[in-house]
């Protein structure tokens, strides 16, 4: 059993975007802060720390999840992918192009989280897409461009 008392630092090992990181951290450190402050991966944005805005969404073992609702220490041994890793994936350029073509980005603060959800379920149906998209708040676009961009990708996929 692992245990760390109070402000004792916990040692965690995590694979983030394919790199293995080993860090000593306070057990209370949120994954979002771990990624941003310990690893310098500032593409993950923090919007509410209540799990409601979706800006901090990353992939944990491939599944989209809120990084603000996870203690980094609890993810010892896990595989995390942030936008900095997602942008190296072969599917990324198509997503980026679609978002841009349909004007799905304005201030861009919510965007990396949405891209994480988009790439997390590539076989999503339109209904599943709506479900995933409802897990993100965007105040700029009215979601119109984002939805169009995502729909376009799903339709292209279906056409393949």
């Amino acid at each position: 059993m692992n245990k760390w008392m109070h402000d004792e630092l916990a040692v965690v090992t995590m694979t983030v975007n394919g790199h293995v990181y080993r860090r000593a951290i306070e057990p209370r450190l949120l994954l979002s802060d771990f990624l941003r402050d310990e690893l310098g991966l500032t593409g993950t944005h923090v919007g509410c720390e209540q799990g409601l805005c979706g800006a901090c969404t990353v992939l944990i073992d491939g599944a989209a999840a809120r990084s603000c609702l996870n203690l980094a220490v609890s993810l010892n041994g896990k595989d995390i992918t942030t936008i900095e890793g997602i942008r190296k994936r072969p599917q990324f350029p198509a997503i980026a192009q679609s978002l841009s073509r349909h004007h799905g980005v304005q201030c861009g603060f919510c965007t990396p989280g949405i891209v994480a959800s988009m790439i997390s379920e590539e076989e999503a149906t339109q209904e599943e897409m709506d479900d995933l998209l409802a897990g993100h708040l965007c105040r700029c676009t009215g979601y119109v461009g984002i939805r169009e961009a995502w729909k376009d990708l799903i339709q292209k996929k279906a056409g393949e």
Partner: peptide, 9 residues
């Protein structure tokens, strides 16, 4: 941010 706690796993 969360307050401090003792952590057991």
């Amino acid at each position: 941010k969360p307050a401090l706690f003792d952590y057991f796993r």
